[in-house]
Nucleic acid binder design. Sequence first.
DNA 1: ACGATATGAATGAATG
DNA 2: CATTCATTCATATCGT
Lengths: 211, 211
Amino acid sequence: METQQNHQQQGNEDGGNKNSNFLCRQSSTRWTPTTEQIRILKDLYYNNGVRSPTAEQIQRISAKLRQYGKIEGKNVFYWFQNHKARERQKKRFTSTTSASDVPMHHRSPAAGVWKYHQGHPFPNNLTGFPSSSSSSPGVLNIGPVGHPGYGSVAMEKSFRDCSISSSVDGNGSGLGQNFVGVGVDPYSSGGGYHPFLEKRKYVDYETLEDE
Amino acid sequence: METQQNHQQQGNEDGGNKNSNFLCRQSSTRWTPTTEQIRILKDLYYNNGVRSPTAEQIQRISAKLRQYGKIEGKNVFYWFQNHKARERQKKRFTSTTSASDVPMHHRSPAAGVWKYHQGHPFPNNLTGFPSSSSSSPGVLNIGPVGHPGYGSVAMEKSFRDCSISSSVDGNGSGLGQNFVGVGVDPYSSGGGYHPFLEKRKYVDYETLEDE
DNA sequence: ACGATATGAATGAATG
DNA sequence: CATTCATTCATATCGT
């Protein structure tokens, strides 16, 4: 796991992009977190118990981490998502079917990371934020958003799709051709419920009061 | 025949998928949209402003898409839900426009496309924005349209279904009636909906919070 | 270099 | 409608 070396060639907060290959996609290779970034993220994850940061938190985190290298909101988002998912995934696989197959991933002492003062229940930071708990020299306080100030939208998408499929038919997108005659039926029942989705489990929180 | 295309054709055997490891080929419980399906969905989403299709629409769409591969109503439903949600989420990460930014979207009434009758302002658009969709299949209003949020061309993300063969042509299968006057049909399918989804499949796993 | 592993990214499905 | 979980793909990096 993270016991690896930190060889990030980072240092350039722009991702350098030394791509020489002119492959299909060469845009920004996937985000390669720097050591600092990783450290901060882990700090937030373990020391602050941040697992699923909200949009505001993500913005703050990414803004903070941007100082150490190029990073976007989605990177932070995915990072936490993956980190959490992976931890759980491993835990669940911790037996089941015992050995005998799936030599996929060897057990990794990921738990080793828990060297910090892991012994206190996290104070629910999902909505709030750590009072301080400055442990690492890069702690950021995900305080109140206050005034975010919108910026530009650049959210670049990765086009891994190699199929350019440019000149296909005279329609390019084939809008007209592929148009599905769904027709916006104004009289659609519009009941509000989705017949596709089966009802809830067994109870309709009708009489249930809020927690 | 569906000509070549790359559909994975999962009429029965979903397996097909693409590569993946040979782990467990449990019938991929997950719907794997084909290129055409995605294309059509995007077309509906962007060019027609469909975002929260109603049951009728979902049925129509799924029926149409079924020509390109196995698909259920819920798949369509979820697709739109996710697509919409993700767009918003993404935006949220990059620019927290708070709630009242609204740079300045001008609902250009230019195209009298969306002129709700004296009664319902497009039940299709829960978000309340002109879908500019051609209620009449015969019309294509893919013009500039003043989409408040996204007026760009589809072409967003892709999928690993990166199957070559760009030839999108030959979509003849049943698509011949593309611009047929399905339009507003008061008698359309009329509530013949049936529950697709079943209850949940998984039981709540251990809700381990942390260690 | 290649194979394995680690991990970022994407998205279907589901729940609240 | 938002939030989250699970699964899978894609790729960077490391080991040999």
